[in-house]
Amino acid sequence: MEFEKMNQQSRRDFLKKFIQGSTALSVVLMYPVPSFSTEKDKKKKANTNYVYLVDIGKCIGCGKCVKACRTENNVPADFFRTWVERYLISFQHEVFTDSPKGGEEGFQPKKIKGEVEKGFYVPKLCNHCSNTPCVQVCPVSASYKSPENFILVDKERCIGCGYCVQACPYGSRYISPNSHTADKCTWCYHRITKGLQNACVQACPREARLFGDLNNSKSKVSKVFHRENLMVLKPHLMTNPQTYYKDMAAEVI
């Protein structure tokens, strides 16, 4: 009697397991379908619209932002999550551009052919494009867009193929020689989620860098966003960058 019961029990167990197993198998078989469930995604999207504004007219090229970024994010030497470019344009329309050490140590005076007619600094960083080519090409879903539209890299899954580095039109990505994975500006996701400012924004003594949520009417960016003459880098590529530049000259690449 006892034995029979046990036998029954185990049979039931087996049946249960079999059904569970086959359900799991069918789920597994159906799994590799990209999720088009918009309903679900909508829930996951945060109600924020973060943008980064760069005011070229204010930048003095001190490079404190590059330094702050390197300390905050442990950026390996010779690679940059943000950098500052200097443009010097002569009367003959000769455009001299440089970024020694990413501008980290500031800029030394530079002689160019002819008088400098126009000069300015342009801080660069990841544009966190809405229509980003880097996430599109990542084969293992290691590059992803967070619910707040930050473009981030999962260092545990990245295989280091370098396709995203090739796909980024702005040179914002690199393969870190330390982790052998793709690395890039995170807009200081870890600081923003803690209620802090991005390291580069905080380090800027001239408020040339601004970051905030456009949906928050109290934020500084929401106050200037529609009033200023803003441009994005390489707009013809339709990547829809979320890093905007104020008063950007045509020479900026």
């Binding site: 090409v137 084969p139 899954r157 280091g160 396709y163 982790s179």
Partner: peptide, 23 residues
């Protein structure tokens, strides 16, 4: 031989991103 993490090569089949050509 080129990958930064060849031991993770099978990620390409485990968590493929179908918008990528490599996946």
């Amino acid at each position: 031989n080129h990958l930064g993490h060849p031991e993770r090569a099978f990620n390409v089949m485990i968590t493929p991103n179908f918008t990528s050509a490599i996946s």
